[in-house]
Design a protein around this nucleic acid. Structure first.
Lengths: 398, 398
DNA sequence: GCACTTTCGTCACCCGCTGAAATAAGGGAT
DNA sequence: ATCCCTTATTTCAGCGGGTGACGAAAGTGC
């Protein structure tokens, strides 16, 4: 609807973006290949690539000899052209990680969070300290830092300046961008941690090559990221895909959000353990949720209560996934999160069955259901892809 | 991700599209205004508009005098530049309607469908006959017909040639596009009827001016259309937003799709009446579903069973709408469909309450819930907007 | 009728893509 | 070792298209 006008300049930016994205995502190619793939003329490819070579954005990467002609020189994005930082604000620690453009980790700094409801100022201080630490450790000059992506557990309201609402941290309208801006000159990007993890899976994990993916994350909480053509679906205020708080059992268990029958109140780690506690009429083993879930999965063969709770969990999860399939008609559902991986490991076949029973035949037939490949640590990787995505979309202009 | 290269030609097409869309959706403007709104230079606007005037795509529409300077001449899209046809394949009749570009209805032809499971050939014959009838009635030459949009009750698989899966008609993989193509040379467009109705609401009804809208339709069946920036969300095979078959009561009532606990099995007209039948332990008044729902709504004050069924319906519907809000974070939810309008008319305040209780506070605060403005006949209008949208997106090139 | 204001059209200029031709960089045959 | 052939890349003139500057058009007010 509100498309913007185009100028001759936009055209060049766009074409640079096309070339650069192709080089970035699909590895080294020759100019020759690029002409075929992008539809640009050989002359333009040469021209654009020459410019990017000169700027140090792209570098040569050997050559492949062809049968009898001039060998093609391969090109790739130069990993050292710029560096990015990904920040994962978790519930127990703040992780700050530095990457080059190829997403090779160069330095990492973890700051534990003591309080269950940390003050925003504390988190900001941790992030800034981590930023200094990793850039110093890797010897990165400030102007070589392309940007900093931050993944937070909660809703990020994208606007002139990002504002965060994170129930689990007790944050309500925290102007995180403004607070960080006061302490650093770097470009800042913010998104929900589940979505950044989804981005990481999309670029480097189970979502590679697919156009429509929904990443479903199950941990203590439950969330999802809907990714179409590499961009994540955001509603009007970027708080879309709150899968965990969709109603799946009308009038059912009360959820910590206050509503009844939320999916999270059935398949979130806390809820699963609570259901097990009721089923076995007693305490659940293990000091924390992670060991509890591990015990549950391990106990499936011996304990009838464990088996029943797992079966029910597969049911709710399968129905929840079927809802995603019916509503978003994705090509792939990627199940992750620490609890999602632990449960999915044993329940995936059963989840697929239930989802098949609850989803419409046609969309179900289009969708495959898989597990995440990257593990929960990929939140910072995904956060760091935010500035990279911007770079690619802008054709490499800083 | 897979952005296409741009040429200097694309740029012009794009800029024409920007101007044309603006003129189409936001009414007459002067060249002057257009420069401001689109960001194009006055020179370009003049150039582009001149071209479109010459082609008859745009016409002058009077002038407004300014205080002391040359008056601006207003421009608008010329309604008679081309004509479009919208087809509504309903469960009881096929409607074919002819419009000019301004969506003024010029001729209409209805063909009743006798069988509950009509043969595709019959429907195709009706459509082709209707096409001949309306073009003949309005005296439209074949080459003035921009295209034909068809709305069908079911899933449209968009591909090289559209294929329709419509459970309610008993259609399974009907190659509707290929069948129609054999009988007409016009450009053809296909979409689900709920989505075309959503398009109509978006362009001319309750969705005007909003960027993210979800249109929720309740009739015998239940569906939704998700519209972002004027384009409807399609998944990988365009069968997205099957809202009616999302699970809302895990393990609940059996739905005609075979699964348990679908939203449609609670708030679809058939399901509502069935619940009423159980509640009052007896037959429901009226010869058909529409009068049944009308009786239910009318009986709310006298009959306790009716009041209870309505209250429950508001509950399920509110929770279903809350799910849409949580997942899509729209700016507006538009409730329609014949049953949706009848129920919404009395239940809207209650639906809003329930939705507020089930949705997360933040996304709920962003969304307003309203009723459709156009009524169920707008399916053909929405279908007819498909070729118009194409024309606008292509900047007016046929 | 004249000065002033505002809108609209024209023109030279710059940018960027393209096709054709030229050049580079090999392999294989003589 | 040289020449010819093949294939990849670069160069160059040409064309399409947006822009700013300038001037013409079309009013109002005195």
């Amino acid at each position: 609807m509100e498309a913007k006008r185009a100028t001759v300049r936009d055209m060049r930016r766009r074409n640079r973006a096309v070339l650069l994205s192709r080089l970035y995502h699909d590895g080294p190619s020759s100019r020759q290949e690029l002409t075929g793939v992008t539809g640009l003329s050989a002359a333009s490819v040469s021209n654009l690539v020459g410019e990017m070579l000169e700027q140090g954005l792209v570098e040569e990467a050997g050559a492949v000899d062809s049968d009898g002609g001039r060998p093609r020189t391969l090109l790739r994005v130069r990993p050292g052209y710029a560096y990015v930082v990904g920040v994962d604000v978790g519930e127990t620690r703040v992780r700050v990680e530095l990457f080059d453009l190829a997403m090779t980790g160069l330095a990492k700094a973890d700051h534990p969070i003591e309080s269950a409801r940390p003050a925003p100022e504390t988190v900001v201080r941790h992030i800034l300290a981590g930023l200094d630490a990793v850039t110093a450790a890797a010897g990165i000059a400030p102007d070589a830092l392309l940007g900093v992506g931050v993944g937070v557990p909660g809703v990020v309201e994208q606007g002139a300046s990002a504002v965060v609402h994170a129930q689990t941290l007790g944050w309500e309208g925290v102007p995180l961008e403004a607070m960080l801006r006061a302490g650093t000159g770097a470009s800042l990007y913010f998104d929900n941690g589940a979505k950044t993890l989804g981005r990481a899976e999309m670029w480097f994990g189970a979502g590679r090559g697919a156009r429509h993916v929904v990443v479903a994350l199950v941990g203590s909480g439950v969330g999802a990221a809907v990714l179409t053509d590499g961009v994540s679906y955001r509603g009007v205020s970027s708080s879309a895909s709150e899968w965990g708080h969709t109603t799946i059992v009308y009038g059912g268990r009360r959820c910590r959000c206050g509503a009844e029958g939320c999916l999270e109140a059935y398949v979130g780690a806390e809820a699963v353990l609570d259901r097990w506690r009721v089923a076995r009429r007693g305490r659940v083993p293990g000091p924390d949720e992670e060991s509890g879930i591990a015990a549950l999965v391990a106990g499936a063969e011996r304990s009838e209560s464990a088996a029943r709770v797992l079966e029910e969990t597969a049911g709710y999860l399968g129905a929840g996934i079927a809802n995603l399939i019916n509503l978003f008609n994705p090509e792939r559902i990627v199940l992750g999160g620490w609890a999602g991986l632990a449960l999915g490991d044993v329940l995936l076949p059963r989840i697929r069955e239930v989802a098949a029973a609850h989803a419409l035949r046609h969309p179900y037939g289009q969708a495959s259901i898989e597990l995440c490949r990257l593990g929960p640590d990929a939140v910072s990787v995904g956060a760091a892809t935010l500035p990279v995505a911007k770079l690619l979309a802008d054709g490499g202009s800083r």
